[in-house]
């Protein structure tokens, strides 16, 4: 097992490397660099605004902006490894300072959504497969497709509105306003829990649909296999035969699918949190993109991708824990 973990982590390294390169490419994409923007901004204000030449030279040196792109990349990478993600133009502060616990909240939302998807998709998927082509299967399939088809942001808007009309509460945000920018406390935690369900439902709907479909297809395959027939033929009660064998088999794709849905979750979380005004990374990311605050935007892309990679790693490790074939088979099955 330990060997597997180590191997799996080593495989991650080139992936992370490539992700950082692509993130950096995104930073470099818009024409010009951010020092030119800074300079122009300073000039348009007549040289005032706190940006004297010395400061700009200092920044130039600190981020190696006068060198070639390749040198800049490795310089940036070196900085990133030391925890310096660059400088946000918009906030005039290092990126790391601004983001603070927003990334943490993104993780919380993604985690809660994953749980939600599992809890909802599992029983529905099994029910759908066992009752294939019956009314319940059709109805649930249709609901699932509908969940995928409704744009996330629209669902968020509607929920926001109707929660206000029906319950008279404002559900925007991820916590009550007085807790924003406060250190984590028990009250804040409860407040987050209270607000969490809307984004979780909104983000979860599309992922749930996909998960149900896949679970249903996998279980249908298993139900046609001989071992299940044998179990039934030998007189095992249907429910027991189902839960003990085929369901156990479909548990595997269920967990390995985590790696597939995680990028979707983060995607969904980004747009939903913009509509709902959550204090996650989404709104910051959007505003960084709109003002072409590229160090900030690039860092977000980097972080979100790294989060995904870590999520996939966790799902792989869980899978290995669950399935001895993967653990002992040198991962050859993949």
């Amino acid at each position: 097992m330990l060997g597997y973990v180590v191997r799996r982590i080593i495989v991650m390294i080139p992936t992370l490397f490539a992700i950082s390169a692509i993130s950096f490419a995104i930073i470099q994409l818009p024409p010009g660099d951010y020092l030119t923007t800074l300079l122009m901004e300073a000039q348009s204000r007549g040289g005032e605004g706190g940006y004297d030449l010395g400061y700009i030279n200092y920044l130039k040196e600190r981020y190696a902006l006068d060198r070639t792109v390749f040198e800049q990349y490795f310089f940036w990478l070196g900085n990133v490894l030391q925890g310096d993600f660059g400088y946000s133009l918009e906030y005039r502060a290092p990126v790391t300072e601004i983001v603070g616990d927003r990334l943490f909240l993104t993780v919380v939302v993604a985690f809660a959504t994953t749980l939600f998807i599992w809890i909802v998709a599992f029983p529905i998927g099994i029910y759908s497969a066992v009752n294939q082509y019956r009314f319940g299967d059709y109805a649930l399939t249709f609901l699932g497709f509908l969940g995928f088809a409704v744009p996330n942001f629209l669902l968020a808007l509607l929920l926001l509105y109707y929660a206000n009309v029906w319950f008279g509460t404002s559900i925007g945000g991820l916590m009550d306003p007085q807790f924003v920018d406060q250190p984590m406390s028990w009250e804040k935690f409860l407040s987050v829990l209270e607000h969490l369900w809307i984004p979780v439902i909104v983000i979860g709907t599309s992922g749930t649909a996909a998960m149900i479909r896949r679970l249903r297809a996998n279980l249908l395959d298993e139900l046609q296999k001989q071992y299940y027939l044998t179990a039934i033929a030998k007189g095992l009660p249907p429910r027991r035969a189902l839960v003990k064998y085929p369901v156990r088999m479909v548990l595997n794709p269920f967990i390995s699918d985590l790696g597939n849905i995680l990028p979707d979750l983060i995607s969904g979380a980004t747009i939903v949190s913009i509509v709902l005004g959550l204090q996650t990374t989404g709104p910051l990311f959007l505003s960084a993109l709109q003002s072409q605050d590229m160090y900030m935007a690039g860092s977000f892309v980097l972080w979100l991708s790294v989060l995904t990679v870590i999520g996939v790693l966790i799902s792989d490790l869980l899978l290995a824990l669950l399935d001895p074939r993967i653990r002992l088979g040198e991962g050859a099955a993949r």
């Binding site: 490539a18 995607s267 980004t270 935007a297």
Partner: peptide
């Protein structure tokens, strides 16, 4: 395969957002 894996570990929407924000 590695390249595909790398692409797939990018959350699609943020990547789309970043790329389209970079359109001149």
């Amino acid at each position: 395969n590695r390249i595909i894996e790398i692409f797939q570990s990018f959350p699609q929407l943020p990547l789309w957002m970043a790329l389209s924000a970079a359109l001149p």
